[in-house]
Design a protein around this nucleic acid. Structure first.
Lengths: 128, 128
DNA sequence: CTGAATCCCCTTGGATACTG
DNA sequence: CAGTATCCAAGGGGATTCAG
């Protein structure tokens, strides 16, 4: 039995920590988003993302499968065909992802502006 | 001028990518949550988190400051006193964080269950 | 008290080549 | 087509020590 430690972000078993560790990596959100409209094949995901090493994509997909967020289906054909599809749980994950995306699109400008200003300032300081 | 590339998660400049890179790290969400109720001092954050190396906490705080999510105020006193406080932007970040936390608390059980089952299965395979 | 300075490790991610 | 097998680089994070 796993303690879920509701409000305690200090605990590494904190639910939010677990989920952030999952969606915080480089490709997970992208994969979930691509699969939102229906199942896709490995190569389709690969080209849809652009610039992912096959090893890394496999890692990402296996991790998502392990956590019950998608299913991997092998179709016994020649040539091989494998499709990935979000589970109900995986589809529900789009809700918080959308929340992040919404906030991001509205506020990323401010973040980038602040960042640019801070960088400019430190650069200015260095040059005098 | 920075292109924001609204819907294109493929682009590394994608807003969602930028924000995930920020909140996806180990301590940012925790810091923002701790600061939700008002400004805190360095040591208070440190003990409030538990087990963060000072270097890492400093890194996290500086990164948040750089992105305009919090302010760092040095009070000219002996002994030194420095307080960290969320900006308006930083406070607004709590919205998507809450969305993640809500989803997590409701569904982390399923994730952990799926994970445990998958691990058990692979263990069983190895032992035969 | 608030960090800066060092040193170190491990994980994540990538490039490339190969296979059933 | 859908991966696996290797090798490798970068950096995020940590432990510890020291300083203003």
């Amino acid at each position: 039995m796993v303690t879920e430690s509701r409000g305690d972000l200090t605990d590494p078993n904190c639910p939010t920590r677990v989920v952030l560790d999952r969606i915080g990596d480089k490709w997970t959100v992208l994969v979930v988003t691509l699969l939102a409209d229906g199942p896709l094949r490995f190569t389709r995901l690969r080209t849809g993302i652009g610039g992912v090493a096959p090893k890394v994509l496999t890692q990402t997909l296996r991790a998502l499968e392990r956590d019950g967020l998608l299913t991997r289906t092998v179709h016994p054909e020649i040539p091989p065909k494998v499709t990935y599809e979000l589970t109900e749980l995986g589809r529900s994950l789009r809700t918080p992802i959308t929340a992040i995306a919404d906030w991001s699109e509205r506020n990323v400008g401010r973040i980038l502006a602040a960042r640019a200003e801070a960088d400019e300032f430190s650069t200015a300081r260095q040059s005098r």
